[in-house]
Structures are given as structure tokens and as C-alpha cells.
Nucleic acid binder design. Sequence first.
DNA 1: CAGTTAATTAACTATTTAGTTAAATAAATA
DNA 2: TATTTATTTAACTAAATAGTTAATTAACTG
Lengths: 114, 114
Amino acid sequence: MPADQLSTTFQALADPTRRAILSSLTTGEKTVSDLAEPFDMSMPAITKHLKVLEKAQLIERSRKAQYRPCRLHPEPLKDIDEWMEQYRKFFEASFDRLDDYLKQIQTKEDNNDG
Amino acid sequence: MPADQLSTTFQALADPTRRAILSSLTTGEKTVSDLAEPFDMSMPAITKHLKVLEKAQLIERSRKAQYRPCRLHPEPLKDIDEWMEQYRKFFEASFDRLDDYLKQIQTKEDNNDG
DNA sequence: CAGTTAATTAACTATTTAGTTAAATAAATA
DNA sequence: TATTTATTTAACTAAATAGTTAATTAACTG
């Protein structure tokens, strides 16, 4: 398994449970139990997912009494966004999708003199 | 391993060789040998990476004589870009980075009367 | 048709991943 | 101090990943 940061980030995101955990953290800090609640999965499984997210620096953790709250650390997502930049011209220019096609039609109509 | 499309795409991108292959395809269609050339890796290893990219629908393949040219199919990247949307407000608003901090300072100076 | 080039498939291996249950640790509370 | 709550660690397993070499397939070329 590759050790570079971008690979680690993509790897961490390649799991629906971990993406759901991140999404859940967009509304603020959560305990491990809070985060585990929606999933039909043991606590140790959640602990492992949190370790993957923490190693990828997508979350940060602290201590409050017996709790180990997690919060979102979104910076690695910025790196993905920047990596994506070189591909935007390809997928944004695409005519494969209906809405893109319709947008193109609309633009032509806007420029119409008659 | 999760079967959902977004996980498959992230998984495919979680490897530097595969990302380099995609990047190489931004300049146009390439044969397998062309794509393999920069890597210190056997041909079957490259074939496997191409299979991963093809299953993730990040590349498309055709046939020309004994060649099996590959071309970029960027649509799944659009899905990642859309998934990212919910996180942009977090990393774009970040003050963790020096350039963001400097931008903030600059804005204050621009608004100065003296 | 024999040989060469391009690429894939088969068979194998080592490592990683994603989950489990049972036990251990940390901190609060009765 | 004993018990409960929150979480992690240990030990294990099954499946997936990423690579290898050797053999095979496909198509061109002399």
C-alpha cells in the first residue's frame, strides 16, 4: 500500500461508513458512541474506521472525561480538490449529460438576436 | 469491500501508479506499453491497474490491431467533485494555512483609510 | 506459415483490510 | 472501593490488493 498523503486520503474515503462518519461530523464534534449509533457494526469496527480517518488527518480527536470526541479536519480534502483541478476541463466540458446539453442550448438562445 | 460507485472511484484513485496513468491519459489515447513505460513494474501489474481503472469507469478501452488503447473517461471524477461540495465551506474557510492568513491581512489593509 | 510484438490470463505469494468476540483500560458514579 | 460507561487493544479470520513469473492469446510481418 502506497504511503503518499493523497493515496492515504483517497483510501480513507473509499468506504461508505467512513464517508458517513465524516458527513456526520459536519454538524460538529461527536463522541465515538454518537458516531457508531447509525451503523450495524461493533464498536471496535468503528474505532478502526476512526483510526483510518485519523491517520489520513481527516479527523482530530480530544479527551473529555471518558469520551474521545472527534471533529472534522477538512484540509486533506483541499488537496484532493487541487488534484482534481487538472481534470475539471474534461468533465466540465462533457456533453454526455443532459443538463450540460440543455445548458448549451440555453446559452445559444440567450445569444439569439431574433 | 464496498460496491458503491463512489467507493470504487476513490479506491481506484488511492494508488499513485493509477493516478499517474490517468494523468498520462490527459494528453490523449495511449497503448498499454506507452502507459507502462514510466514504471518499474511488470506488464501484468499494469494490466491489473488498467482493469481497476476500467471497472471504476475512469478509462475506456478499444482495439487497434494488436494494441488495446486506453482513453480517459472523466465522468466519475465529476461525482467526486459533487461529493466534495458539502465540505468546501470547511476547507475554503480555513485559517490553518499561511496564504489564507495573508489574504485576510491583505483584505484588512485594502480597507484601510490611512 | 514461422516468428515477433502487444497484451492478457493463470497461478502463486505477501500484505492489508474490514470485520468479529473477548479482554483490558480510563474515568465517572453509587 | 465496586460498578458502570466509554472506548481501545488483542487475537483471530476471510477477503481483497498488489505484485511476481510463466504461459497463452491475438494480430501483424517476413
